[in-house]
């Protein structure tokens, strides 16, 4: 029996596989074919204080080994989440990580305060990195000082574990990670999508209604692994790695680079059982390679290097 439990600071996960925010909704769409009880956790759709309408269509376009999206954080708002989605999620034995999104620091703090006492919430993931919302996302996550302020405000407003999700659209992601760690983050998650663009040459226009969007999928995986490697070497808080994971071997790369857990995102769209298959495949790998606990491989590729 392989011990799959991992600790993300004070948050214990039954296994290191989560679903990435924005790719699994609030769990309902896939719950009938993907047993959420089998997962380490679900990182729910980015949720704001009031409902957000999102961006005009087209919102997605496929790219080589990936896709661009510009959903614009469409979500039904915190009240709806608390009254409708969270009670439903409580039936599952899995960690519910609530991704919070906001346009102002005070809104992040308010979200954190109101979720603090909500039964069934295991942790918060602070979205300071979504590139789609012009008024906020990008600026919070791309400047260490601002990222520090957001993290500190959320930290003060809640006793829940605070995970800060980092954007890759920066020169030095390790500096961002250090800033949020110093501000009291319990963990960081990375990477969010890489800012990109596609032009439809027949239409002579950008392919996305929002003009630019976030690139995800296998195309970004090597970038994500490199950034997890850098951040894991720069901070002592745990790292949750994500970016283009489709199978167990992909996920193992992140763990060996220093991530304590991983999240599956875009792969779920093509294969709804991908998170479950990653978890099973990871256990099989550990068994084959003679490990008894998944925690034994965290940072394994760093030995003798960093």
């Amino acid at each position: 029996m392989i011990d799959l439990t991992v600790d993300i600071g004070r948050l214990r996960l039954k296994n290191p596989v989560l679903t990435a925010s924005g790719t699994c909704g609030y769990g309902r769409e896939y719950a009938h074919i993907l047993d959420l009880n089998q997962l380490g956790g679900i990182m729910v759709k980015g949720t704001s204080l009031v409902p957000w309408a999102g961006n005009p269509a087209p919102r997605v376009v496929e790219t080589p080994a990936g896709m661009l999206n510009a959903i614009g954080l469409q979500n039904p708002g915190l009240d709806y989440f608390l009254h409708t989605e969270l009670p439903w999620l409580r039936q599952f034995d899995t960690a519910v990580v609530v991704n919070i999104a906001a346009h102002q620091i005070e809104e992040y703090a308010e979200l954190a305060r109101r979720l603090d006492n909500a039964a069934g919430v295991a942790a918060l993931e602070v979205n300071i990195s979504c590139p789609n919302v012009r008024q906020g996302g990008l600026s919070f996550g791309s400047d260490p000082l601002t990222a520090h302020r957001v993290t500190a405000a959320v930290r003060q407003a809640t006793s829940l574990p605070v995970i800060v999700k980092l954007t890759p659209n920066v020169t030095d992601i390790a500096a961002l990670a250090r800033a949020v760690a110093e501000a009291g983050a319990d963990a960081v998650s990375l990477i969010n999508t890489l800012l990109g663009m596609v032009i439809d040459v027949r239409a002579r226009r950008p392919a996305l209604g929002n003009i630019v969007g976030g690139l995800s999928g296998p195309a970004i995986r090597p970038v994500a692994v490199r950034m997890v490697w850098e951040v894991a070497g720069a901070v002592s808080i745990p790292v949750i790695g994500m970016g283009g994971i489709t199978c167990a071997e992909d996920a193992l790369q992140f763990l060996m680079a220093g991530a304590s857990a991983v999240a599956i995102g875009t792969a779920t769209f093509a294969n709804p059982r991908a998170p479950f298959e990653v978890m099973k495949g990871m256990a099989a790998f550990l068994q084959e390679e003679g490990f008894t606990a998944v925690s034994d491989i965290i940072g394994l590729a760093r030995r003798g290097i960093a």
Binding site: G22, T23, C24, G25, E29, Y30, K45, G54, N55, P56, A57, P58, R59, V60, V61, E62, M67, N69, I71, Q74, T266, T268, F269, P272
Partner: peptide, 14 residues
């Protein structure tokens, strides 16, 4: 409309 998930999870086909 262009779709990613097809099941209402990604909110891509608005």
């Amino acid at each position: 409309e262009r779709m990613a998930c097809g099941v209402g999870a990604c909110l891509g086909c608005a």
